[in-house]
Each structure stands twice: as C-alpha cells, then as structure tokens.
C-alpha cells in the first residue's frame, strides 16, 4: 500500500508522486499521514512538509493552504511551496525585508494587501527555518 501525494500551488504543480508517508504542518500541529488514513480535511500552516519515500526524505517549505486525504490520495493546496534545495536564502531574506518594510506603512494599505504581505513574511520564515535546520 502506498499513498499518492500531490502538492499544487496557483503557479504550478510542485510535486506529484507515490510515497510512503508524509508529515504536514497544520494549524493544530504536525499531522503524519500513512496509507489507510481516514478522510481528513485540514488547514495547512506555514512550515515544513516532510515526504518519505523508501529511504529518501524530501523536505519542502509550504505556505498556508489546505490538505485533503481521501482513499490514500493526499492533495495539498498551498499558496506557496518550494523544495529545500531550491530555497535561495539571500533572496528570501531580501523579499522578507521588503515585505516587512511595506508592512510598516500599514495604515495606508488595503486589507487584502496586508494579508498578502503577512503571508509572504510567514512563508519566508518557514523557508529560512527549513533551509537552516539542515546544515
């Protein structure tokens, strides 16, 4: 028995494969999913998603979204997702700084824009966490 995992963002399909287990960061803490899991729908938090396939472990940073489990199919819908090796630490730091600067002038921004920037900052933090922990 194995799971199929799909990670999709609005920009692209980031990952699609059959895997053994996956650990998803939800708003209530990490959830480990094995084959035979009962149907689940959970909110995904910004954080680290671990995929195990055979002896390999793949780590991705994901931004907020949702995960659905049904019939051994795991579908992750995230605003952002990036694999560990693709994270560019410096670019992330720059993006984070820019977003934080923009947020300082909060009063003049639209609520939707504030939400977007805050999401960006949280995703940046998650990316840096993932990148730095593995060294």
């Amino acid at each position: 028995m194995s799971l199929t995992l799909e990670i999709v963002t609005p920009e692209a399909r980031v990952y699609s494969d059959t895997i053994d287990t996956v650990v998803v960061p939800t708003t209530d803490g990490e959830v480990g999913i094995l084959p035979g899991h009962i149907p689940l729908l959970a909110q995904v938090d910004h954080g680290e998603l671990r995929v195990t396939k055979g002896s390999e472990t793949l780590i991705l940073a994901v931004g907020g979204g949702f995960v659905q489990v049904a019939d051994d199919k795991v579908a992750v819908l995230a605003e952002n997702a990036i694999t560990q090796e693709k994270i560019d630490e410096r670019a992330v730091e720059d993006a984070m700084k820019r977003a934080e600067d923009a947020l300082r002038g909060k009063d003049s921004l639209e609520p939707a824009e504030i939400e977007r920037l805050e999401g960006l900052v949280r995703f940046s933090v998650a990316q840096l966490d993932v990148k730095r922990r593995r060294r």
Binding site: T26, T27, D28, V31, I38, P39, L40, L41, A42, Q43, F66
Partner: peptide, 15 residues
C-alpha cells in the same frame, strides 16, 4: 466520515 482540523466550520469558513 470526514475528519476536520481544527473543526469543520473553521475549515469551511477559510476554504
């Protein structure tokens, strides 16, 4: 049966 985390209304409200 379907499990919701944290709970159904919250997830649906967001989704």
């Amino acid at each position: 049966q379907m499990l919701f985390e944290p709970d159904a209304p919250t997830v649906l409200e967001a989704l």
